[in-house]
Design a protein around this nucleic acid. Structure first.
Lengths: 155, 155
DNA sequence: GTTTCATCTGCGCATATTGATCAGCGACTG
DNA sequence: CAGTCGCTGATCAATATGCGCAGATGAAAC
């Protein structure tokens, strides 16, 4: 569960140059190939590394608009709302939260006009009482994990 | 910029089994290896596929608590706040938004108590007027892109 | 102090994959 | 009709992979 410095460097290396293989990584890190293999296997079976899925940019797919919607849910309708939202492709992510709203979801759309359609589809469901939407203008810090990895691995 | 059905299937395949190579992918998709190579190159130079970075789970790193903080910023301090937040490893993501707040950021922490420390560090900066935080309880829909890819590629 | 255990190293081998390149071919374009 | 584009199926040398192994190392347990 805890990762050490070598794990951290390995993850950073893979993040910077995902295409390199185990052999090349071992050369860069200055350790034996078997070590890198073992570390990688461990990190994956640990769940620290979930996978190496392709990182797809919604904007490049034609969905340049991102928004976050805070939803208020009728008591006892949570499960239904979850199932509903799971069927909407433009819902990229959904969380249940404490605080003012009950759920927070990340949406994408083809345009601001299209966002209206998406929101209508999202909230056009009985269990949702109210939705408040914040459109993303800039994304100064894109989803990242390396700084956290560095911290967790003791720099 | 637009992707076709083969692109969509390729992305899905890579998402499901990231470890397979170009050759294996070509076998699964029933096309020539060169075709897969060319498609992959195109998708990457297009920016549709940004990369294949390791998908690291913060929880497995010891940061099981996720929260979203809505920040209100003093006029004209936006750039400073961005720079400040970029230096906090627990800030995984930052957006500027329309709506009630001015920014929305995703935070992680080692515990609810640790979240207090993170928030103090985040808001302990002159340009930030107010922060309201929503702690994530469940994550019914984890960040996903495949449904959108399917839609964009004509199912 | 010494035994035990987990880990890392460096090596070799057979097999598989990669990157590059080729000619052939069907579909679309002007 | 000639030109262009993308896909195919093939080759080649270079490289990487999965696997196993013996020995070295270091830390913890006895």
């Amino acid at each position: 569960m805890a990762i050490d410095h070598l794990d951290g460097r390995l993850i950073q290396l893979l993040a910077e140059e995902p295409r390199i293989g185990v052999l090349e990584a071992s050369r860069r890190l200055g350790v034996a190939r078997g070590t890198v293999q073992a570390r990688l296997d461990r990190l994956q079976s640990n769940g620290v590394i979930r996978g190496f899925g392709p990182d797809v940019d919604p904007a490049a797919l034609g969905y340049p608009v991102t928004a976050f919607a805070t939803l208020e849910i009728k008591q006892g309708q949570g499960a239904d709302v979850r199932n509903h939202l799971a069927t909407v492709p433009e819902v990229l992510e959904l969380h249940t939260t404490t605080g003012h709203g009950d759920m927070l979801c990340r949406l994408v759309a083809r345009s601001n006009a299209d966002l209206q359609r998406v929101i209508d589809r999202v909230v056009g469901f009985d269990g949702i009482m109210r939705a408040s939407t914040a459109i993303v203008m800039e994304n100064p810090v894109r989803l990242r994990i390396i700084p956290l990895v560095q911290q967790a691995s003791g720099d």
